[in-house]
Design a protein around this nucleic acid. Structure first.
Length: 549
RNA sequence: GGCCUUGUGGUCAAGCGGCUAAGACGGAGCCCUCUCAAGGCUCAAUCCCGGGUUCGAUUCCCGGCAAGGUCACCA
């Protein structure tokens, strides 16, 4: 069979680059020893999710801790699934979490290894497919979808491995005559790899994350060029990662099972194999069993969920780092002042199996991160959230910057020996300060002491309250009013005979607290009243007392 | 079903032949205290099962079982 003639018939393109041209155009990168070149290669099918971010973080860390390059490549070989604006969305989302690409689609700067959209690289793939055809390592296949489905059905019935291989690879042994006959008849075709592998042969393979794994040789005649002339993922992956000079391919473990295909492809193409690291999938518990996070069912997978809920980006990253590298958490605890970028990242300590998306843990990390911010920084963070997601009232509250900052100074405990950690995320943080504003102060009084005593306490304390008092005087006056209203003024006497009092000092303070904040729990009451000002504090106490008529 | 991966408290996890099996989150309790938060202290809770190798297995080997992934002209 004249393979050259056949190749020209199947891929008639005349302006294809030569293989040597490609090697010259995309030479090995000039980087220091040990530098990793990694990439995020999403398909533009929608919006980026937590799993992508997780994997991207691993890529970014691997590249940037070794002085390497982290780039963005768009795998747009499937026309049907394309979504407008997806690329910008990926870049924006990653940027929100502080991850930056060095090069790639839509990125300024050195684009020496582009184009980074696979559709724009069609000529390169076709050149290599043609070469494989000429070397007899690939062949055209005319099987229809129905035929393929039928073989799959038979294979399933006979409990055999499904796929296009061995005796099921009908077009593999097509005669020259038959091929041209089909071609002349205008039958659509795909180009398949003529696999040289043997499934009974197993090799040990070193995965950068999972360690030693066994891989079986591939014997599937996989499609490398679809009938529209566009490559499949497998083929594009081999060619792109070779010519973009990727050194470390980090991807989800769902790719592990197609690793044999990729190994064979690199081999027949004559490319050195990059190293691979397969990350664990993000799971969640659902109805008692674990399962992979799903885009449709799990809002916590969407990055927008974290933005809308007002999670602090650095906290999300830090959380991901803790599941990415098992010793990160310990390192972080020992080096509280250091940024995660200073952590000596290593692929070998990455999570090997499954990670559960644990919001409790995220919340904990988030509290700690937020507790590092000054009131001004907290203000900026909350305000940014409120501008996009908040109510009109929220926006109005943030307009009074000085007042809000004094509130936040109290709520965050900034300057105190121990910070408060009430704020977990922006949405909840903004609600937390609602009672500092009259328009959102909507108390539902739930006093636990007797009405009469509470009323006496509120009116009595209001009568002697002075906004200029320090904390100590404030508390003395509170106790004074408490005593007059029938509450105990110290815990010892209360404990001695609780029945002779309306309640303890705590109960007396609670009455004031509920009147002023609407809640039995709050930060330092004295400071709250000072921030609110005497007028509003007294008005609130009067209003509460009235409600007890 | 075939193949691959993984099985340490409720969750994330160190440990990988040998002290009473780290730590974190969550839970319970105590202290502190005008409440809450924070902080400090304490407690409960774990090596999937069965064989084998060994003086000794969570750790090594085999077999189960379970979970997950994957078996497209999708990536």
């Amino acid at each position: 069979m004249d393979l050259k003639k056949l190749a020209s018939r199947l891929i008639p393109d005349e302006d294809l680059p030569s293989l040597a041209d490609c090697e010259r155009a995309y030479p090995p990168r000039d980087l220091p020893e040990g530098a990793e070149v990694t990439r995020l290669a999403p398909s533009p099918t929608g919006f980026i999710h937590l799993g992508n971010l997780y994997s991207a973080l691993a890529d970014e860390r691997a590249a940037h801790t070794t002085g390497g390059v982290f780039y963005l490549r768009i795998e747009d070989t499937d026309e049907k699934r394309k979504v407008e604006g997806a690329v910008e969305s990926v870049i924006r989302s990653l940027d929100y979490f502080g991850l930056r690409f060095d090069e790639g689609a839509e990125i300024d700067g050195e684009n020496a290894y582009g184009p980074y959209y696979q559709r724009r690289r069609a000529q390169i793939y076709r050149a290599f497919a043609k070469d494989l055809l000429e070397r007899g390592l690939a062949y055209p296949c005319f099987c229809t979808e129905d035929e393929l489905n039928e073989t799959r059905r038979v294979q399933t019935e006979n409990k055999e491995i499904t796929g296009y291989y061995g005796k099921y690879a009908k077009c593999r042994g097509l005669s020259e005559e038959q091929i041209y006959k089909n071609l002349d008849a205008g039958m659509p075709f795909v180009i398949r790899l003529k696999s040289q592998g043997d499934v009974s042969v197993k090799h040990s393979f070193r995965d950068a994350i999972k360690g030693s794994i066994t891989v079986t040789e591939n014997d599937q005649d996989v499609v490398i060029l679809k009938s529209d002339g566009i490559p499949t993922y497998h083929f594009a992956h081999a060619i792109d990662d070779h010519f973009m000079r990727t050194t470390l391919v980090i991807r989800g473990e769902e790719w592990l099972s197609s690793l044999p295909i990729h190994i064979e492809l690199f081999k027949v193409l004559g490319f050195p194999l990059p190293r691979y690291g397969h990350t664990c999938s993000l799971m969640k518990v659902d109805g008692g069993t674990k399962r992979k996070l799903s885009k449709r069912k799990d809002p916590e997978l969407s990055l927008d969920f974290y933005r809308a809920a007002g999670y602090y980006p650095a906290a999300v990253i830090k959380y991901l780092m803790t599941i990415l590298n098992s010793n990160f958490e310990e390192w972080s605890a020992k080096n509280p002042e250091k940024d995660y970028t200073q952590f000596p990242f290593s692929g070998t300590t990455m999570c090997k199996s499954v990670a559960l998306c644990d919001l409790d843990k995220l919340n904990d990390v988030s509290r700690d991160e937020l507790a590092k911010l000054s009131p001004e920084e907290t203000y900026v963070f909350l305000r940014t959230w409120a501008d996009e997601f908040g109510t009109d009232a929220d926006k109005k509250h943030f307009a009074d910057k000085d007042y809000m900052i004094s509130v936040l100074a109290l709520v965050t405990g900034a300057g105190q020996k121990k910070r408060r950690k009430d704020i977990v995320r922006a949405e909840q943080g903004v609600r937390l300060v609602d009672y500092f504003f009259d328009d959102t102060f909507a108390p539902e009084y739930d006093f636990r002491s007797e009405k009469q005593a509470v009323r006496a306490m509120l009116t009595g304390f209001a009568a002697i309250y002075d906004a200029n008092d320090g904390n100590a005087e404030w508390f003395e006056k509170l106790k004074l009013a408490a005593g007059k209203a029938g509450f105990a003024t110290d815990n010892a006497s209360y404990k001695a005979s609780p029945e002779s009092f309306s309640g303890s000092v705590s109960d007396a303070a609670e009455a004031v607290r509920i009147a002023v904040t609407g809640s039995p729990n709050s930060p330092d009451l004295c400071t709250i009243m000072r921030i609110l000002g005497a007028e509003r504090s007294l008005a609130r106490m009067a209003r509460a007392a009235e409600s007890l008529q």
